[in-house]
Simulated assay, not measured.
Amino acid sequence: MHVQLSKLRQAYRSKVVLDGLDLTLAPGVTGLLGPNGAGKTTLMRTLATVQPPVGGTITLDGVAVTSERGAREVRRRIGYLPQKFGWDPGMRIRDFVEYAAWLREVPDARRSDEVEKALGQVDLLDRRNERMSKLSGGMRQRAGIAWAIVGGPGLVILDEPTVGLDPRQRLQFRKILSELKDTTVLLSTHLIDDVAAACDRVVVLHSGRILFEGDVAEMAARGREGLPGETPLERAYMELLPVEERQL
């Protein structure tokens, strides 16, 4: 799925959060970086059609989303995992993921296979009959990732998906991303090493505006010595921030 945001504006009452934002997303994994309060979650909620923008346009595969009816139609093709997602404590993992497939209108004939595939990708297939309330935080997060990817949506939006995952599970998550190269993925994270390891492109957001959009290698090349950070990508990120925010 190709995504085009043009002059996107989002606000809460009188507070402007996104201000005339232009962004293009294509198949592959795009990392979204930025400090707390940059507008990352607002951007993802708007892109997922959870809340309509107050200005500008969202275009998916050449079709502008201009109404609630249009938003309902494109939601079938979007997998969205918010930072804090809801779940019924009595639900089994399998039921939870199958509900996502049903919402995405995955045909009955292949819904079961798609659920099994998603659970296998997040290493929960052998735990599929466990209740959501019995899971550890990391397992619940993996169930959420399965929710987002089941049925092969064209656009997958992941807001801090590696929170609660241990190092092995984070490596597994990166493997999942590597299998989604034909999908348009927007990944918000505070872990720059995840961006370096798993993303093709990166967007740096600050105060509702884009400070950088481009290839990960292109950004890393800007990471000059003398700035805080252990890697070129970390130093490049710090260089993009306003001077007063670079001090540790």
Results as ranks from 00 to 15, higher is better:
220 A>T: 02
157 I>Q: 02
143 A>I: 03
170 R>F: 00
39 G>P: 00
166 D>K: 05
108 D>L: 13
205 L>A: 10
74 V>C: 07
215 D>N: 08
41 T>S: 15
216 V>D: 04
243 V>T: 12
105 E>P: 07
175 K>P: 00
230 E>R: 14
65 V>D: 03
122 V>R: 01
20 G>F: 03
177 L>M: 10
25 L>D: 11
236 A>C: 12
245 E>T: 00
164 G>F: 12
63 V>K: 13
169 Q>L: 08
217 A>S: 14
81 L>F: 05
53 P>L: 06
157 I>A: 06
38 A>F: 01
109 A>V: 14
177 L>N: 08
114 E>H: 02
164 G>Q: 09
113 D>F: 01
163 V>R: 04
151 G>S: 05
98 E>V: 06
125 L>K: 07
133 S>M: 05
159 D>G: 09
30 T>F: 09
212 F>T: 11
67 S>P: 03
62 G>F: 06
84 K>V: 13
13 R>C: 03
125 L>G: 01
238 M>W: 04
42 T>E: 00
176 I>M: 07
185 V>W: 04
71 A>T: 11
207 S>C: 04
187 L>R: 02
1 M>A: 12
232 P>S: 13
4 Q>W: 03
153 P>W: 08
204 V>H: 02
106 V>P: 11
170 R>E: 01
131 R>N: 04
126 D>G: 00
121 Q>V: 00
103 L>D: 04
11 A>K: 14
154 G>R: 15
65 V>Y: 06
234 E>G: 11
89 P>D: 10
111 R>K: 15
120 G>T: 14
228 P>R: 07
220 A>K: 06
200 D>N: 14
99 Y>G: 05
44 M>V: 12
191 L>A: 13
148 A>S: 11
239 E>V: 00
58 I>W: 11
237 Y>N: 03
206 H>G: 09
221 A>C: 02
158 L>G: 10
63 V>R: 13
177 L>R: 08
91 M>E: 12
189 T>R: 08
79 G>Q: 02
31 G>R: 08
92 R>M: 13
135 L>E: 05
84 K>E: 14
217 A>N: 04
55 G>M: 01
230 E>P: 00
29 V>T: 10
